[in-house]
Each structure stands twice: as structure tokens, then as C-alpha cells.
């Protein structure tokens, strides 16, 4: 689907996740926290079931002992082309930008949490409390990313600050952006290269290639959200049936 957005902008950012490579190591989870000034998920926050993780690793059990498997899948905002979180926001705090991303304007958000209900992937996180850091820890906050206050929604931004910086620096140096020049923090960390980021408008980019892979699927396909994050299926090389019920 070609949207007006794509026609306007030269880029259409997307991510490809090779589930077969993901080991569940959580490097992406911590890297995202560190990059995006996410509130500390303290023990209390955990107990209140309000844990923050713009990217999370879901773990599912398959089979029974001893032929049991724990499988992992990283899930972040899918940057849906047809995002169910967007139309419900009364104040346009979450909207689609011209580069295929779902973006969040913290300043506008009034905290209805409607978008959180609207998102089928549960990747929107609400600041139930005012985020606090001990003074010394505030030194580590990333100046490129707003520190959110309480009462607002937040979620994976595709590390938009890195995209902006990448585009600007390429322009400053008078060079063309190359595939891989811009890496969100999670992609940068991922040891197994399970996460790949790039521009779908560049037909040769790795994400474009992965989007045409035989193993490509998207999450909750039937909802027609047209995510800009695509997944490559996990391969099971042992005998027996695929998928199935637990």
C-alpha cells in the first residue's frame, strides 16, 4: 500500500525481526531504556503491572518436558500503517508522520489511555506516576529525548532522534544515507542481528529484502493494521508438527 505519507517523504522506515535468531538476551530491552530515558521499572512498578519496556521479549512455552521449548519474540511498536491507536486519540497526540512512523507528541497527550486500549499489540506505556531519578542518575539522561512527565502515553519511537540526527548529519556531510547508517538503540545492541532497521523505499536495503523473504509474516495480520515491523518466522528443524496448541 502506498500512502500519501510515502509520496511526501523520501523515506519509509521499518524494522525486520528474525525470530529465528533472537535468543531472548534482553540486550535490546536495556539499550532501549538507556537510549530513551524510560522511567525505572521499580519493584513497585512491577507489582502494579505497569512495567515499561518499549521493546519487550515475550516468552512462550511449547511442548512438555523433556521436549519443551521456551521461545522468544521481541515486540515493539509495529508502526502500523493503519494504526488503531491513532484515530481514537482525541487530541492528535499520536499520529502518522510522513515517514511511515507512528509518532507520539508527549506535550499534547492528555492521558486518556484510549490509544493504549486501541493498540492490539499492547506496546503503549502509560506514565501512571511522575518519573523520578536520583539526582546523580539524571546525568545519564539522553538530551535528545524528552523526559516524560506523569499522565502521558509513550512507546517505541523507532528512536526518531537517531533518525533525525542521521539524516541531518548525512546532509551536513553532503553524503547519501546508506543502509545501516541509522540504527535504533535496540538494533545497535542486538548481538545476533535479529533486529534490522532500514528504509523500505530503498529496494536494496536489508529490510526490503527481508520483507520479501519467504518466512516473512506480520503480527495479527487479520486486523489489517499493516505494520511496518515485519517478522521472519522461527524455523523448527526437528520432526513433528508445526505450531499447534500448547
Amino acid at each position: 500500500m502506498v500512502t500519501a505519507a510515502e509520496k511526501v517523504s523520501g523515506h519509509k522506515w521499518g524494522m525486520a525481526v528474525d525470530v529465528d535468531r533472537c535468543t531472548g538476551c534482553q540486550a535490546c530491552v536495556m539499550a532501549c531504556q538507556a537510549e530513551n530515558n524510560t522511567t525505572l521499572s521499580t519493584e513497585d512498578v512491577y507489582r502494579q503491572k505497569r512495567t515499561f519496556a518499549w521493546i519487550r521479549i515475550e516468552r512462550y512455552w511449547y511442548g512438555e518436558f523433556p521436549d519443551v521449548k521456551a521461545r522468544f519474540i521481541p515486540i515493539m511498536c509495529q508502526h502500523c500503517e493503519n494504526a488503531p491507536c491513532e484515530p481514537v486519540c482525541p487530541v492528535f497526540a499520536t499520529y502518522h508522520n510522513t515517514e511511515g512512523m507512528n509518532v507520539q507528541i508527549y506535550n499534547r497527550c492528555v492521558g486518556t489511555r484510549y490509544c493504549g486500549n486501541g493498540c492490539p499489540y499492547n506496546v503503549r506505556f502509560f506514565n501512571y506516576w511522575e518519573p523520578v531519578w536520583p539526582k546523580s542518575l539524571r546525568n545519564q539522561l539522553n538530551p535528545d529525548v524528552t523526559v516524560r512527565s506523569r499522565g502521558i502515553m509513550e512507546k517505541c519511537s523507532f528512536c526518531v532522534q537517531r533518525i533525525r540526527r542521521g539524516v541531518r548529519e548525512a546532509a551536513r556531510d553532503g553524503r547519501e544515507l546508506q543502509d545501516g547508517d541509522i540504527e535504533p538503540a535496540c538494533v545497535e545492541a542486538c548481538p545476533t542481528n535479529a533486529l534490522v532497521f532500514g528504509d523500505y523505499n530503498d529496494a536494496d536495503s536489508r529490510v526490503s529484502v527481508m520483507r520479501n523473504d519467504d518466512r516473512k509474516y506480520t503480527l495479527l495480520d487479520k486486523l489489517n493494521t499493516f505494520p511496518n515491523v515485519v517478522y521472519l518466522a522461527q524455523v523448527d528443524a526437528t520432526e513433528g508438527a508445526t505450531g499447534g496448541h500448547e
Binding site: 525470530v19 521461545r71 519474540i73 519467504d214 518466512r215 518466522a233 508445526t242
Partner: peptide, 16 residues
């Protein structure tokens, strides 16, 4: 829940 949600599993050579 239907198999393949959210982790789709394919056999070697099988397409998604």
C-alpha cells in the same frame, strides 16, 4: 489460541 500467534514456526523450506 491459534498456532503461530505471535511466534510463527515454519519447517525448513516451508514458507510463512
Amino acid at each position: 489460541v491459534e498456532g503461530g500467534v505471535p511466534i510463527l514456526i515454519v519447517k525448513p523450506g516451508q514458507t510463512a
